[in-house]
Design a protein around this nucleic acid. Structure first.
Length: 299
DNA sequence: GCGTGTTTATAGCCTG
DNA sequence: CAGGCTATAAACACGC
């Protein structure tokens, strides 16, 4: 694996692992989840190296998604046709990379292991799913809140469940990599002070639904033939959306799909006791507003 | 058939 | 050096 280093990478292999690249793609999206095809697109857009031998690396990437517990699968709603599910980061994988660096993981994320990044974050898969939904609710509400009180909370983007709380951010940390999108002069047009696309604030939506041409409104890849600038992220805005899909999806890792009681786990009375509940909700069922409000109360 | 997702196997590199 | 992490390949299943 090439080391990050002095010169440029140009079309050479980036220093990021597939896990890192996938995490970047997911994190780059305000909704914190992407379908496989969008993950592909994200990587190919940013790293010319991955525009070739797609069969090889995409197979590896799929392997990583399935093999690593740090990725959770979220099904599409029945009324959202399309291939495959969405992929999100496990809420507990925030400390997966040392200092948040994407160069190499210090430890392999394992469901059930001891993760200290978020004491509220559960370790069991089913709990993780519930936690994920809770965080999603927070995210959406914070977006709405930001829309109502602009300008404010530039750190709104960092409400992600996998963001490190504060303090040192490694140069390769996802915040530092992705944040470039929001800091570059040319890339601010679509974003508010909260870091969300404005239309997203008003109508939280699923990022994968944006039209095919939307992503290419900015300049062509600034890195083409050049480098990845400082660790690599060009300045394209991603995950624009023009549609509304207000419903929070249901995570379904194999162990999650059969676990009853996920929605109940989000109730105000038992936010962290997701196991052992009953009466599963149908996939795609919308969360009641009360659940969202409780999520904010937690926040 | 194709895209997606899972699983197994193997090899190389890195870290403790 | 052992174990962990990562990359790669391949086989297979499933749904559209």
């Amino acid at each position: 694996m090439p080391r990050p280093g002095r010169n440029t990478y140009s079309d050479q292999k980036p220093p990021y692992s597939y896990i890192s690249l996938t995490a970047m793609a997911i994190q780059s999206c305000p909704e914190k989840m992407l379908p496989l095809s969008e993950i592909y697109k994200f990587i190919m857009d940013r790293f010319p190296y991955y525009r070739e031998n797609t069969q090889r690396w995409q197979n590896s990437l799929r392997h990583n998604l399935s093999f690593n517990d740090c990725f959770i699968k979220i099904p599409r709603r029945p009324d959202q046709p399309g291939k495959g599910s969405f992929w999100a980061l496990h809420p507990n994988c925030g400390d997966m990379f040392e200092n948040g660096s994407f160069l190499r993981r210090r430890k392999r994320f394992k469901v059930g292991g001891a993760q200290a990044a978020d004491p509220l974050a559960p370790s069991k898969p089913q709990d993780a799913a519930a936690h994920y939904l809770q965080q999603q609710a927070k995210l959406r509400l914070s977006a709405l809140h930001a829309a109502a009180h602009l300008p404010q909370m530039p750190g709104g983007y960092n409400l992600s469940p996998v963001s490190q709380p504060s303090g040192f951010k490694h140069p390769f940390a996802i915040e530092n990599i992705i944040a470039r999108e929001y800091k570059m002069p040319g890339g601010l047009a679509a974003f508010s002070a909260s870091g969300y696309p404005l239309h997203n604030q008003l109508a939280p939506a699923w990022p994968h639904m944006y039209g095919s041409g939307v992503m290419d409104t900015s300049a062509p890849l600034s890195m083409a033939g050049g480098d990845y600038s400082a660790y690599g992220m060009p300045l394209k805005s991603i995950c624009h959306s023009a549609q509304t899909l207000p419903v929070i999806p249901m995570p379904i890792k194999p162990s999650l799909a059969s676990v009853p009681g996920l929605p109940q786990s989000l109730s105000p009375t038992s936010p962290q006791t997701a196991t052992g509940q009953s009466s599963p909700a149908a996939p795609g069922e919308a969360l009641p507003a009360a659940v969202l409000q409780s999520a904010v109360a937690v926040h």
